[in-house]
Every structure is written in structure tokens, then in C-alpha cells.
Design a protein around this nucleic acid. Structure first.
Lengths: 181, 181
DNA sequence: GTCCGATGGTAGGACGTCCTACTATTTCCC
DNA sequence: GGGAAATAGTAGGACGTCCTACCATCGGAC
């Protein structure tokens, strides 16, 4: 539960070099790709998504570390907080968070060990495990939310309009890939 | 080196539920966030990036698995292929690929074990290790490139214009976070 | 020349994800 | 009702990333 050591860098993300490159490595790769391979539009977009995800993940995890959370665990906490009864079956959590069942098990294990959630029996289906957010979990969620919103989730450099446009474009991709109907 | 088992799903990505949800889980979360927390624009965009990265990573890795590559190793191979001499110092590879030095070590270890690259001594600096793509590596890159372009890197649902717009938006973020000057 | 800080790379360990199997329970269909 | 098939969750293992610590080498200050 300690903040990471300071580095000699302006970079927010954890994956960093000492100094930012003087050129855009993705744009350069795209140029070379056009020369040697073919149209690079898709390649460039995919690489960009990968890289930005890495930046955001690192920024958010850094903001959450003092609160003993990762982004995945934070998302789980928020999901339970939003739920009507403050509890959900593991399986539903996996669907909403788009996670493998075993990842849900892992996440809930950690949250439960920290006393932020607890597993309770489902009233009618004995196969099902309900996960319920505790009072400590609610408080932790509030504090963690302040931390991540304070750093804008690591998303910088966009206007609100551009941010919304980004979300829309990505939603098209998610729908086309069958994330939702 | 075997293709993954078929699942009962239309979803391209590896992380999947049996059926797509009938609603957009990110849009729903954004609505709840607006109700309970505040403006959800940034939160929605960040979650979307995370999810799309997961989809793309899974699609690309699936396409590359028959070729014995992950996306990270494929990127390394492409980087060396593009380089003038067919070789680069480990450190430079880490800068271009935005990877931790130890991750570069890991990736090069795997590629070398498969005979796709080899470590050679730097002519003047004995600290530095050069990584050189082999003929087998060049052939593997060509085959792998066909595989990933055949599935469009998993990026579906966007026009070329929209794909370019996505790249531009993400470049703004990368620049703002100090990825490049 | 020599020393000391900076640089390049690797080893070992933590963490989080996924996958494959496995058990327990429920549901469906005859 | 009785049994096959589906469903919920977990255990154990592989993989890839990061971090800290470490060793070897280089380069500059004196």
C-alpha cells in the first residue's frame, strides 16, 4: 500500500522510458507498414488502442494503489454499489464486467479478504454464490472514486466532445464484435 | 500450437459469455454513474478502451496462435523486419514497443528459442545486445501478417474514415500523456 | 590512469488474466 | 421420479506483464 517510486519522467503511465520519444512510434510504424506491407489504417488504430489502454490502466492503477485496489476490483465494487440490493451472483458480475469466471473468483477473493465484500448464500439456488458489498466496501468505493476522478482516469488531451466521440467509435466496434446486441 | 476450442458464441474475442448481452453494459454503467456519482463521459470512454483492447488482443492472439506468436512477439518481429539492418539493440526495441526492459528480455527469449531472431554482440559496445531477425523470422512474419490482416486485427464495424478518426483521437491522448513529443 | 555515476541487460518474484478440468446443483424430458 | 444435460463456481497451472535488485560495461571528471 505504498506509492510507487518517483521516476525521472513526465510520463503518467507506468510503462515508460526515461524520456518521451521525439516522434510518434505508431505513426512511424504506419509509414513503414505502408511501404513494405500495405494499407496501415487498421494496424495503426489497433496499435493505438493497445497503447492507450496500457496508459490508462497504469494511470488508474497508480491512483487506486493507495486504496488497495486495482481497476478490475474497483469496477467490481462499483458494479455492486450500483446494484439494487447491493449484491449480485458471481456469474452476473462476470457478464457485466466481461470477465472469465475464474477472474471473478480471483477478484472476489481479494475483495473479500479485505472485507469489502462478502459471499452469501443464494436463497433458492444453492449453486449460486451472491456477492454483497459491505459498509467498508461502500466507503472504499467512495474514496477510490475520488482518486480516479481526480486524475480523470488518466484520460487527458481530449475535449468532452472528443471523449464522447471516442466512446461512440469504440461502441461500434464492441457491437460489431458481439459484445451486446 | 493448436486452435482454441470452439465456443457457443458469436463473439470473436476470447473473453466471452455464452450469448451477447441484450444491452450495452458500458452505456448502462454510464447511466447509473450519472445518477449516483456525476458526469460519466470520461468513465465511459476509459471503460470502452479497456474493453476494446481486450477484444482486439484476443482476436489477434487467436489469429497468431497457429503461428506460435503473440501480438507482442509479432510486433517485435515486425519492428526488426522494418529496421534497416534487420537488427536493433534490446533497449531501442523497448522504447519503440513501449515495453519494460524485462518484457523485452522475455519476448526475445521466446523468439530466439523458436529460431526467429538471434542475439548478436554489438560491434563496439559490449553492454549492448543486438537482436537480429533470421530468415525463418522473416518468413514467419510474412505468414503471421497474412493471418492478422485476414481478420482485420479484430477491428470490425468501422469505416476507413472512422478508423482513422479513432487513431487521431488516441494519438491526442498519447501525446498528452507524454508518449512522444 | 582511476573512480564513480550512468547505462544495458538479466534473474527472481509478484500479480492478474486466461484455460482446462472438476464438483455440486438444478432443470428438463421422458 | 429418474437420469442426462446444462449451469455455477473453484482449483491448479500456463503465460505475460511489471517491479526490484543485481552485474557488467561505458564515459566523463579529476
Amino acid at each position: 500500500m505504498r506509492l510507487p517510486k518517483e521516476k525521472f519522467s513526465l510520463v503518467i503511465s507506468g510503462t515508460m522510458t526515461a524520456q518521451p520519444l521525439p516522434f510518434d512510434p505508431i505513426a512511424r510504424a504506419a509509414t513503414l507498414w505502408e511501404e513494405h506491407v500495405g494499407p496501415a489504417t487498421v494496424m495503426g488504430a489497433v496499435t493505438s488502442v493497445m497503447r492507450v489502454q496500457q496508459i490508462l490502466q497504469s494511470a488508474v492503477d497508480t491512483a487506486l494503489r493507495p486504496h488497495g485496489l486495482t481497476f478490475a476490483r474497483y469496477e467490481a465494487l462499483v458494479l455492486l454499489f450500483f446494484s439494487r440490493r447491493g449484491s449480485l451472483p458471481m456469474r452476473v458480475m462476470g457478464q457485466r464486467l466481461q470477465l472469465h469466471p475464474t477472474s471473478v473468483t480471483n477478484i472476489v477473493d481479494r475483495l473479500e479478504a479485505d472485507g469489502l465484500v462478502k459471499r452469501i448464500a443464494h436463497p433458492t439456488d444453492r449453486r449460486t454464490t451472491l456477492v454483497e458489498i459491505t459498509e467498508a466496501g461502500r466507503q472504499r468505493r467512495a474514496a477510490a472514486t475520488e482518486a480516479v476522478t481526480a486524475v480523470e482516469f488518466g484520460l487527458r488531451g481530449l475535449t468532452d466532445r472528443q471523449t464522447a466521440a471516442l466512446t461512440d467509435l469504440l461502441a461500434k466496434v464492441r457491437r460489431a464484435c458481439g459484445d451486446f446486441a
